[in-house]
Amino acid sequence: MSKKKSSLILAAAAALLLLIFLLSLLVGRYPLTLGGLLAAEPDSMERRVFLNLRLPRTIIAALGGFGLGIAGYVYQTVFRNPLAAPDIIGVSSGASVGAAMGILFLSASPLAVTVSAFCGALSAVLLALGLAFAASGLARTYQRSDTASLVLAGIAVHALAQTLLMLLKITADPEKELAAIEYWIMGSLSGANLRQLPVFLGVCISCSAAIFLIHRHILMLAVDEEEARLLGVPVNRMRLAVLLLATLIVASTVSVTGLVSFIGLLAPHIARLLLQRHWLATLALSGLLGAILLCMADILARSAASGELPVSIFTSLLGVPFLLYLMLKKEKN
């Protein structure tokens, strides 16, 4: 595929995202119009809804989706496995345990749950990385495969987190706490607000920028490990740094949105089918598609029924048919 065609696809995706971003600002239980917003008094209901709820929510959906998209692509590259997703090293399950603990033991305010989910996600990943490091140190290494150690450690942490989550659910009050935990796990941006924005923006933007800046090094991790080392890549340190960057993005996003990690698997696959060869362009397109998917899913989640629906329903409903269409088209060609 020519660079011109790649640029065209990227430009089209960016334009579509802009359109959906604007639509997302206006659609909801309290409908807004551009004219109304411009004419409204500074202290009016329209302005307050726009600035305190709609704008932060849309920014979180767009940037969170972008982050999940690029993090998914990075995981797939680093693990050299197209099925790798954020949960491969326990991010999502760690976040779920963190959120459940926040709901049960902290104030259950959105901010407390967010912070608790973030800490849970990071703890799970650090535990998985620690286990993998210990395992690869113990089995010192005729046929090196530190990625396999990481995947196994991730599976172990995921299983452990699921057990913890079950225990927490058993102790939860079925009427309130259990419902809140289940709702969080299904993912929703209904709790997104202005107070969450600074930390989320800071983490998400800085980590995404770092990933783009060191993209050439991430690309080198797609090469066989020994070969990469002899091309001058400090494989273990680079992999650790890149995984931490991607994990911070995912943790900061799911701690605000609940589990919507399917985007991390879906967006990179669609991007790869559309672009095929240019890694950097595919990385950017994964992000744009992730943002489009999450924004559209969020619009539908808040407008398809009289109440808020879980956002994950719509990320799958929107993404899977498109992915299947592209796969079939590729088969045909």
Binding site: T77, R80, P82, L219, D224, E226, R229, V233, V235, R277
Partner: peptide, 22 residues
């Protein structure tokens, strides 16, 4: 270091795999 080794040795392994499209 890895970097210095790479500046001094070129290595072509028996099998080569690149997991992404390039």
């Amino acid at each position: 270091s890895e970097r210095q080794l790479a500046q001094n040795i070129s290595y072509i392994p028996q099998r080569n795999e690149i997991s992404i499209s390039l």
